[in-house]
């Protein structure tokens, strides 16, 4: 589909230019691959199972824009953010990012759970590639914004997930990014921190930074984003004003829920139901793993 240039695009320099982006997963190598399987695959010459997490995505973002990425689970939202952040390399198409990127994908700033909050800020700065002098300069304001009290000197493993998210948000937004990527972070923290973080995102957008946000908070999308895209099954389905895109997403979600409900009545044979169950199982496994890592 063709992308409408945003109203300011003619003059403003773009921050992100994505053309015909595709990301393919090769399911031959997953976390459970063993040598035995690999040899078996080689011998049987089975074509490797492949899966497009994203395909044919075109996107352009200029400074001062706040883009919401919405869509059902497994639509490729997080993959898009990972590609923009440079964590993942596109399989096809190209991604042109102009400016310093800071991102908070997933939750929390637990760079090393054994270390204290302060130590994690320094370590996080080193991971993000911020110069040490700069991060030490920013340290007081990061600590201040996270507002963790005496916990800032305690090991991160003693933090609640909300506290981790606060620290992570504080680090990611303090390092003076040109482009800020946020994944589901607004839903965490208590009410007062959510207010504070909203204010900070708006402030960043005002100072002509670009923000890309993945969220399920539709109220936030409509109120504070000036554009939204809807991803479904790795395709860009709709792009436009937040209100329209949110409406479309909700319609699609309702239709999918109705179809699932009908399938359940028919005996649960609908593949989407199976898909959902599989996803749930995967999610549960992932969470268990994460708990194990944190232990």
């Amino acid at each position: 589909m063709s992308i409408q240039p945003p109203p300011v695009a003619a003059e403003a320099p773009y921050a992100i230019d994505v053309a015909d982006l595709g990301v393919q997963y090769d399911l031959r190598f997953n976390r459970k691959t063993t040598v035995r399987q690999s040899i078996a695959n080689l011998v049987t010459r089975k074509p490797p199972p492949r899966f497009w997490a994203l395909r044919h995505v075109d996107l352009r973002l200029v400074r001062g824009e706040s883009l919401a990425v919405i869509g059902p689970n497994g639509a490729g939202k997080s993959t898009l953010l990972q590609v923009l952040a440079g964590i993942m390399r596109p399989t096809e198409g190209r991604v042109d990012v102009r400016g310093k990127i800071s991102g908070l994908l997933g939750l929390g700033a637990a760079f090393d759970a054994e270390l204290s909050g302060i130590e994690n800020i320094l370590l996080g700065g080193a991971f993000l590639g911020v110069e040490d002098a700069r991060i030490r300069e920013l340290l007081p304001s990061i600590v201040d914004f996270a507002d963790l009290g005496q916990f800032i000197d305690a090991p991160i493993k003693t933090y609640s997930s909300g506290m981790r998210a606060r620290l992570g948000f504080s680090i990611a937004t303090s390092v003076d990014p040109d482009i800020l990527l946020l994944d589901e972070v607004l839903a965490t923290g208590d009410a007062s921190f959510r207010e504070k973080s909203k204010a900070r995102v708006i402030e960043l957008v005002r100072s002509a930074k670009a923000v890309v946000l993945v969220t399920h908070d539709m109220a936030w999308v409509k109120e504070y984003c000036n554009r939204a895209i809807l991803l479904e099954k790795g395709r860009l389905v709709s792009e436009g004003s937040p209100a329209d895109v949110v409406e479309m997403h909700l319609e699609h979600a309702a239709a999918a829920a109705a179809a699932r409900e009908a399938a359940k009545l028919a005996g649960g044979l609908d593949p989407r139901v199976e898909d959902d169950r599989r996803r749930e199982r995967r999610e549960r496994r992932r969470r268990r793993r994460m708990e194990m890592v944190e232990d």
Binding site: G86, R89, P90, T91, V95, K100, E131
Partner: peptide, 14 residues
């Protein structure tokens, strides 16, 4: 910043 250059352009192939 050092990261800017490295991330500026990411083609798929090559």
């Amino acid at each position: 910043m050092s990261r800017t250059d490295a991330l500026a352009f990411r083609p798929a192939s090559g």
